[in-house]
């Protein structure tokens, strides 16, 4: 199986997200970065499929030059080839991103053969546009289903499970297929020392794309207004249990 996974580098904020003075981006001065969680699971899923059925995993990202860090991480957990589409801006809008990814995937496929499976995260953790995978699949004329939390590879098709409240829906999608994956599909492995060393040597190809901006334009980021409430401290040890149960009784959850 030839599998390609599209991932996004995102900041990893803790208790609060700060915004730059011009209001246009997350202030990342004191932040680390990570792979958007759904995509981290997509990489793990691809590696597991390749381990079980044989095959190669390519990981592609559109992002700043520093996104090499996330590509190398993917290699450290088992991805074979890495592709970076570098951008100067903080982020590209969804249409522009999808057009660049489509062009890049088409280019790779023309040179090296078609992928059987393309995996995307259901949505990126930061911008959350909910559409890049769908646009790429449509442009390539391939089926796509989002929200996938289980994949079984068959002969000429994949069985995909999508979580709904209290159960799941099943899809039988012919390959070549595209799936939007959600966190929880697996528990991503941690890189081994050997994996880390190997990732430094993994081949990384940089492919420039110049696609046009789409119709959605970001103006400003801001934090939602929050109601601040006083916290009542009920105690500093197990003796607070009586006060806690008083509260639970008042709330009517003891019935």
């Amino acid at each position: 199986m030839r599998i390609l996974v599209c991932v996004k580098r995102v900041p990893a904020p803790g208790a609060k997200i700060n915004i730059t003075a011009d209001g246009r981006a997350v202030d990342t001065a004191h932040l680390g970065f990570t792979t958007s969680p759904h995509e981290e699971c997509a990489v793990e899923e691809a590696v597991q499929i390749a381990e079980a059925h044989g095959g190669e995993v390519t990981v592609l990202t559109l992002g700043p030059a520093e996104a090499e860090e996330q590509l190398r991480y993917a290699a450290s957990v088992g991805a074979h080839s890495l592709v970076l589409v570098p951008i100067e801006e903080v982020d590209w809008d969804p249409q522009r991103t999808a057009a660049a990814l489509t062009a890049t995937i088409s280019g790779i496929e023309a040179a090296e053969g078609a992928f059987d499976l393309l995996l995307f995260g259901n949505e990126s953790a930061d911008a959350g546009g909910f559409q890049v995978g769908v646009r790429v699949a449509h442009a390539l004329g391939r089926p796509i289903v989002n929200g996938i939390k289980g994949i079984d590879v068959g002969d000429g098709s994949v069985t995909a499970r999508r979580e709904i409240d209290g159960g799941f829906e099943v899809y039988e999608v012919p390959t070549p297929a595209v799936l939007g994956v959600k966190e929880g599909i697996n528990l991503p492995r941690y890189p081994t020392m050997k994996g880390r060393l190997a990732s430094k040597k993994a081949a990384l190809v940089t492919i420039e794309q110049s696609t046009e901006a789409g119709g959605q334009l970001r103006e400003r980021l801001h934090r939602p207004v929050e109601q601040v409430s006083e916290t009542v401290i009920l105690g500093e040890g197990p003796e607070a249990a009586a006060a806690v149960v008083d509260v639970l009784e008042e709330l009517g959850v003891l019935a």
Binding site: K16, S229, V232, G235, E236, G237, P238, A240, V244, V245
Partner: peptide, 26 residues
């Protein structure tokens, strides 16, 4: 902790001691 400052009520203590005590009190 962020969750404490945003909570309505808080107990500042080891959960391993507090949780069984709550269950017992109920």
């Amino acid at each position: 902790a962020n969750i404490v400052t945003r909570a309505d009520w808080a107990v500042i203590a080891d959960l391993h001691k507090v949780i069984p005590a709550i269950t017992e009190e109920i």
